[in-house]
């Protein structure tokens, strides 16, 4: 009987799926950025292209039952699309379909936090991998930047918002990385303190300008930290 229970326990443990989350923030609109000395987001798809590159990289690492979920900040692509008269949302949907990943839009910080907390039953389906592509400073992931207002952000995830996210949503060996600028200078530490898992982040800036490639460190003394 004891062996039977053991076998069953092993069997049900093996059923636990893990979620791999790719999070894409939105681009600036050119109205606010054109003409600036350091002009951001000349290409609308920096945070989409790099996310797709990452999805391709990660797919071979998925175990049976794992799922990649792609969360995209919709308002950023709506307004940039209106500016350039293009349907960026459909473009992103097409990319998700091509990669065969589940795509979810989010419009607010609350929606994102709700997904992280409750999007799956986190007692059996924890987040094993988390990648963020978008603007950031050392204290904040900025889902929009220079999109609603010049050089400002309306939707973001600040370290002070961590208290709204459950602490046990990640697997103990989860791999998290922010590909935005400056995350390794402050955000990563607060992330580890709250969630108990490290987050790789950049000290200095990152650059998304290489085609078909992940962002790279672009500051003189830039490095990845966690």
């Amino acid at each position: 009987m004891r062996r039977f229970i053991l076998v069953l326990a092993c069997f049900f443990l093996s059923l636990e799926a893990r979620e791999w989350i790719i999070l894409s923030g939105g681009p600036a609109i050119r109205f606010y950025e054109a003409g600036k000395e350091r002009s951001h987001d000349k290409h609308w798809g920096n945070f989409i292209d790099s996310a797709v590159v990452r999805i391709k990289e990660l797919r071979p690492q998925l175990a049976e039952g794992d799922q990649i979920t792609w969360l995209v900040y919709r308002p950023g692509y709506q307004s940039r699309g209106e500016e350039i008269n293009g349907d960026l949302l459909t473009n992103i949907l097409k990319r998700a379909n091509q990669e065969g990943v589940a795509l979810f839009w989010f419009d607010t910080q609350d929606q994102l936090i709700n997904y992280l907390n409750n999007g799956k039953d986190r007692s059996t389906n924890k987040i094993h991998h988390f990648d963020y592509f978008g603007h950031s400073n050392k204290a904040c992931l900025l889902f929009d930047y220079s999109n609603v207002m010049d050089s400002m952000s309306k939707n973001y995830l600040h370290t002070m918002n961590f208290k709204k996210i459950k602490k046990d949503i990640f697997t103990p060996d989860a791999v998290c990385q922010s590909w935005g600028c400056h995350s390794g200078e402050y955000y990563s530490g607060k992330w580890k303190t709250h969630f108990g898992v490290p987050m790789i982040g950049a000290i200095g800036k990152t650059d998304y300008s290489r085609l078909h490639s992940l962002p790279f460190l672009s500051s003189d003394k830039g490095q990845w930290a966690q």
């Binding site: 003409g35 292209d49 349907d87 473009n91 799956k120 039953d121």
Partner: peptide, 30 residues
């Protein structure tokens, strides 16, 4: 736990794509 809908599955006709220029990731400013 909130109910989270599954992603839409059917393939659909995709509207004209706004693609990045092949040479560099730069758009002309409006």
């Amino acid at each position: 736990p909130m109910e989270i809908p599954v992603v839409q599955t059917e393939k659909k006709e995709v509207l004209p794509e706004v693609a990045a220029p092949a040479s560099a990731k730069v758009e002309s400013d409006p």
